[in-house]
Amino acid sequence: MTGILGKKLGMTQIVAEGGKMVPVTVVEAGPCCVIQVKTSEKDGYSAVKVGFMELKKEKNMTKPQLGIFKKAETSSYKFLKEFPMDGFKIGDLIKADSFSIGDFIAVSGISKGKGFQGGMKRHNFKGGPASHGSTRYRAPGSIGASSYPSRVWKGMRMAGHMGCDRVTIKKLTVVDVRPEQNVILVKGAIPGPVNSIVEIRKG
């Protein structure tokens, strides 16, 4: 498996073979520096901790953060994430060129916040009739029976906060890789707003 942290830069279209327009998301993928290698002997499981987006100034870091990077003797990074990988040592750089055209990847990110939303938008309820004297256009309908259970079942789908969830989209295709700009082009959309941090995993 290869894991990398990236930044969603935005969407556009490119011309694929045969003259078809393909929607792509431009993602700045890495370079990610290996900060720590966890082994099953020492930590109980094996993983690699990587850092993304270098921090230049010491004053922008907390003391616990500084300790991590001092121990690893690497430069400092804003975002840290563990991936279950092996075959890396501290200080290694994982770059965009670890992906190639045609790879299937999974991308995780925090989806756009939608605020407090009703049942129709949040759970795809159908709502009520729009005409014939109806006034319950977007209401959720019945939420349960009467004397039994005399309460609403736990987990009943209702209006509430929507978005800002961790969302993973699997089986996205890599359309192009540009190692000199640390950019990969992913076919289709990925979760989150522009400039948000996303995890990209392969295999």
């Binding site: 830069l9 935005g10 556009t12 490119i14 431009v26 540009r178 700009q181 950019v183």
Partner: peptide
């Protein structure tokens, strides 16, 4: 958005 623009330029 400059990198997105750079991607687009290549296909113009």
């Amino acid at each position: 958005m400059s990198l997105v623009k750079a991607v687009e330029e290549g296909f113009k």
